[in-house]
């Protein structure tokens, strides 16, 4: 127990990279000396379905690996919103991509805050569609402040360093994606 634990749920289609985002964020939190727990939903949906990642970050030991409702819930597809609405409660900030058609109708009325961000569109137009998940990661950090941007960059380096070495432009691209996500949420994680 002790200090406040931030609970983050990420849900998207398999392949959208929600598990990687969760992994990088928790890795960054761990490197920062925080207690972090990342629990993937690895159900039958592992192949071709909704993929969910449960992340908890705090100052002391984390209890149960899962939680009822998140402080922030990031949905990357319509199916993800439909399937995972149970994790949205009166304290939850729901973030979803503004390109998701029909999302508004599926948003549970009890969410504390709902934010539609144009992550897909902006990453496609200004960066590269492949860094969409990093934009989302930036948004998570922006919304929660669970890790600093500096730590996030280091964790990215640890995860993608090999690719960055082959193509140094990728590093800059990912960093910009991270910042874009944070700015889309409109809050600084630094």
């Amino acid at each position: 127990m002790g200090g406040k634990v931030v609970r983050i749920a990420l849900a998207g289609e398999g392949g959208q990279g929600v598990q990687s985002i969760a992994e990088i964020i928790t890795e960054a939190a761990f490197n920062e000396g925080k207690e972090a727990l990342y629990c993937p939903n690895f159900g039958l949906e592992q192949r071709g379905g909704v993929s969910i990642a449960f992340v908890q970050i705090g100052d002391s030991r984390i209890g149960a690996p899962k939680f009822k409702t998140g402080d922030i819930f990031i949905a990357l597809s319509l199916r993800a919103i439909k399937r995972c609405r149970q994790y949205i409660g009166p304290e939850t900030t729901l973030v979803y991509d503004s390109s998701i058609v029909g999302a508004e109708a599926e948003v549970p009325p009890n969410a504390a805050r709902v934010m539609a961000i144009p992550a897909i569109q902006r990453s496609k137009e200004e960066l590269h569609p492949r860094v969409f998940n990093i934009v989302i990661m930036g948004a998570v950090i922006g919304a929660t402040g669970v890790v600093t941007m500096e730590q996030a960059r280091e964790a990215l380096e640890a995860k993608l360093g090999g690719k960055f070495k082959q193509n140094p432009d990728l590093r800059e691209l990912n960093y910009r994606a991270l910042e874009m996500g944070r700015d889309l949420i409109g809050k600084s994680g630094e």
Binding site: E23, A36, Y38, C39
Partner: peptide, 10 residues
Amino acid sequence: DGYQAKMRES
């Protein structure tokens, strides 16, 4: 259990 198998923590 499955959680302990798959989750990450320090």
